[in-house]
Amino acid sequence: MITVAQNENNAAGVAPKAWLRRLRNNGNLLLGAAVLILFLIVMVLAHLLGAADPQAMTTSERLHPPSLQHWFGTDRLGRDIYARVAFGTSASLAVGAAAAALGCIIGTIFGLAAGYFRSIDMLIMRVMDGIMAIPGIMIAIATISVAGASITTVVLAIAVHDVPRIARLVRSSVLSMREEPYVEAAVMLGSPSWSIVLRHMLPGILASLAVLGTYVAANAMLLEATLSFLGCGLPPDIPTWGNIMADGRILFRIAPWIILFPGAVLAFAVLAINLLGDGLRDQFDPTTEKTMR
């Protein structure tokens, strides 16, 4: 449903000045990017300054409410929630980014193949339909329970779910691009398939991939938190936002800060990425207003 692909060539073709002007007026993009940069700064600072060790346990200070000493309070093992959330930024963002990247790469490969090589189109798209038919969370939980919980498996498990969506998008873009004169010309000139796909088609879909990729990243971060909440996420010694919340799960009425702070931070990050996605879409494709992901 995202139809930015056709306009991408226009976007690249317009004068840089107009593009910049549009960027200035693109509140979503700027705000989203600003919040994300803020998160990156926090992440770097947390590692550089090391305000507090996210793993340090002071069991005598367990379940302390937020104070000047512990901005976000402490958990049941007396660990500083602020330090954990700050350090968790890297893990959580990394999971989101990695899942999105992986999903995009695999999805693009399948999408290109299905769109370009019509002989395997049917097979690939039925497989994609099959994956899509299984709820994402089921794929993820089942994968993790089979392969064990590590960063690799969690990222993979989350990415699998998004592959069909990306493949569909890429395939439909490729199908419409096949009819374009420059692709037809390349075919007639006898360029090899891989060169047509890589040189002429891939650049045409990058913009829409970037937009969809941000949404995928946002979803991946939410899914990671949900998996940790259900007890099948990343290993507990990695302080992701999801893991921190999982620690406080049964303590919600006793120590709500364990869930609320990471929850709020997660919501902000996801919101920022979603805004970034909306902004990217507006930036690449100012004429249409599509709101579906």
Binding site: T226, M245, F252, I259, G263, V270, N274
Partner: peptide
């Protein structure tokens, strides 16, 4: 709407119960 998409369901659930 954008915000609603960003909050994990279980956080909403716990807040509602509370």
């Amino acid at each position: 709407c954008t915000a609603g998409f960003s909050v994990p369901t279980f956080v909403v659930g716990y807040l509602l119960v509370w």
